[in-house]
């Protein structure tokens, strides 16, 4: 197994863990954490392909990850603000109990 394949496998497993967590956990914050994990699995892929790819001097993978980290920060801020707003409204942060369409 080459180092690139090792990285890709780690990233695939990380994605699967994140996905399982985001789908199965009831708490809204943990769903967000799962999404962050999936995003980071993709980032790891970018870095791995950049490192072992044909043109590392082009910096494409690194740039993509830098922008992705910035977007993840924005996503976390908005997502957690949403969780707090939902908690304030429904007095719960369990995703299953938030099912009314009208306040």
């Amino acid at each position: 197994m080459s180092p690139l394949q090792g990285c890709l496998l780690v990233s695939a497993l990380l994605f699967a863990i994140g996905f399982a967590g985001a789908v199965t956990r009831r708490h809204a914050i943990l769903a967000l954490v799962g999404i962050e994990l999936m995003l980071n699995a993709a980032n790891l892929n970018f870095i791995a392909f950049w490192r072992y790819g044909a043109h590392p001097e082009a910096l494409t993978g690194v740039m993509f990850v830098i922008f992705s980290i910035a977007i993840a920060a924005a996503e976390a801020a908005v997502g957690l603000a949403l969780v707090i707003a939902i908690y304030r409204h429904y007095k719960t942060s369990n995703l299953d109990e938030v099912k009314d369409l009208k306040g």
Binding site: L8, F15, A16, R25, R26
Partner: peptide
């Protein structure tokens, strides 16, 4: 109370399938 959503089995099955396919 339970920390997992009711249909947790399907979620884990799907993620295992995703990992198998990717691997």
């Amino acid at each position: 109370e339970a920390v997992l959503a009711p249909g947790w089995f399907y979620g884990i099955a799907v993620s295992a399938a995703v990992f198998t396919l990717l691997g």
